[in-house]
Design a protein around this nucleic acid. Structure first.
Length: 439
RNA sequence: GCGGCCUUAGCUCAGUUGGUUAGAGCACUAGAUUGUGAUUCUAGGGGUCGCGGGUUCGAAUCCCGUAGGCCGCCCCA
């Protein structure tokens, strides 16, 4: 058996798997471009401190980190956000606003692999920098929806759960929680859906048992699932901050509604996202059946660029992972089968006919056609089978009889018809077939 | 890092109470078929039975360890 195996959680892409990966990347890239986002890339290996600065020392246990030969503490990138913040921060004053960037890149996390989670995976990251208002969220969430919908998935297949850490902060502040308690409560909210009441255990241990009246109010807010319910719940807590924030909510939902995306969006205050650096709207995309891990996650992080050494620059972004996205597409039968895209197959009689065929083969390839031929002498029957297997539309037949007459037989493999063409016209006949033809 | 289940050909699997040289289907290669894609038939290549150790006259089979896979927990940027 194989003496060497790939490392756990690292994937190998055989041609059929690579074709599926390309299909996903192509749609993402094309969709981002239609929204006016520009593509970038950055180093795979970064200073370890870049991630510690953002997420704290304990993050190191989740990283592929090591000391390089120059004594530098480094890590394979586990995410793009710190990197893109550095890139944007370094040139913030020279970049036209709003800054709309995306990337498709591989990331590495030292975690136990599970369904939908590998140690090496790709993410499609989209971010908008420089716009503090909900207009940026409208643009970004519209892109998120379209980047999933574009595969043929509909509102019956996935949805985006939309929440707001600001309103959570305002609400908990109004209930009298201090900053540390608020962090504890947000941690409990994050786990509540999975664990139920046990989610508050960690809070109770750290801050003392939660007053049952306050707990009911927290749970009531966590169950807010619509703008109307949100307005109703907050009516008891009047104030300028909350009034202004509700106006942002109406603008955001109004904008997404005007784009025709209302059916993809659900208000859900059960979402807070674990990361401390999110500062406003947060959202996650899920499959409707609830069978898979989150397809995408994102939110606003207005302080991060500055925290990482750049200027104060508001930002909002999301990432879609390729693993869960691929699982969902395969579940719904939306991952296209791997098909070869050969245009022309040259059927060659034998060694004597090879030279004539090679001249046309190379000429057609130089013109951009995808041309295949048998690499060594093969029976005619096998060659036609190979042509069909390769998905070729046309076969060019270089047999002794044809070449003696100065012609090449051109066979339309779909229509199963053929005609003889003088050799010097082969190129133009092929060109006509593909330009005037079906596709 | 913790727990459960699993591992025989490229893939899906069979393999009797432990008994000769480990099988099938699919896939691949070739032939039937030096001039036309299907079907069919025939043949072939491909295995240190995940790896290491133990029990035994004898291990794919029983025992121990270990690696890998799947699933769950922790975590999830």
């Amino acid at each position: 058996m194989a003496q060497f195996q790939s490392l756990p959680g690292f994937r190998e892409f055989y041609p059929d798997a690579f074709a599926r990966r390309n299909h996903v990347f192509r749609l993402w890239r094309q969709t981002a471009h239609t929204f006016g986002f520009q593509e970038y890339d950055a180093p795979v290996l970064e200073p370890l401190d870049l991630y510690k600065a953002k997420s704290g020392d304990e993050i190191e246990t989740q990283l592929f980190s090591f000391t390089d030969k120059g004594g530098r503490e480094v890590a394979l990138r586990p995410e793009m956000t710190p990197t893109v913040c550095r890139l944007v921060g370094a040139k913030a004053n020279a970049l036209k606003r709003p800054i709309k960037w995306f990337s498709i890149a591989e990331f590495y996390r030292y975690e136990r692999a599970q369904k939908g989670r590998e140690r090496a995976f790709f993410q499609y990251n989209c971010d908008i920098f420089g716009e503090p208002g909900p207009e940026a969220e409208i643009e970004l969430i519209a892109l998120l929806v379209q980047s999933i919908r574009g595969f043929g998935l509909g509102a019956q297949d996935f949805y985006v759960r939309l929440s707001d850490r600001n309103l959570w902060f305002y609400y908990l502040e109004a209930l009298g929680f201090n900053e540390a308690q608020t962090r504890g409560i947000l941690g409990a909210i994050d786990k509540y859906e999975k664990m139920g009441d046990d989610a508050f255990k960690a809070y109770d241990e750290a801050h003392g048992a939660l007053d049952s009246g306050k707990k009911d109010k927290v749970i009531a807010f966590l169950k807010v699932k619509s703008l109307a319910a949100l307005e109703e719940t907050l009516a008891a807590f009047p104030g300028d901050k909350i009034t202004a924030r509700l106006a942002d909510w109406r603008k955001l939902l109004g904008g997404l509604g005007a784009m025709g995306l209302a059916e993809f969006i659900e208000v859900d205050f059960g979402v807070v996202r674990g990361l401390a650096y999110y500062t406003g709207f947060v959202f996650e995309a899920f499959d409707r059946k609830g069978e898979l891990r989150a397809i995408a996650g994102g939110g606003r992080y207005d302080d991060l660029v500055q925290k990482l050494g750049g200027p104060a620059l508001p930002a909002v972004g999301f990432a879609i992972g390729d693993v869960t996205m691929g699982l969902l597409l395969e579940q719904r039968g939306l991952m296209p089968a791997f098909t070869s895209t050969t245009d022309v197959y040259a059927v060659i009689g034998g060694e004597a006919e090879r030279a004539a065929a090679f001249a046309d083969i190379h000429s057609l390839r130089a013109d951009g056609f995808r041309v295949e031929y048998p690499i060594k002498d093969t029976a005619f029957g096998k060659q036609f089978k190979a042509a069909a297997d390769a998905g070729a539309k046309l076969a060019l037949i270089y047999g002794g009889d044809e070449l003696a007459k100065g012609v090449v037989k051109v066979r339309d493999l779909g229509a199963r018809t053929e005609m003889e063409v003088p050799r010097d016209q082969v190129s133009s006949v092929v060109r006509d077939f593909f330009s005037g033809g079906a596709e």
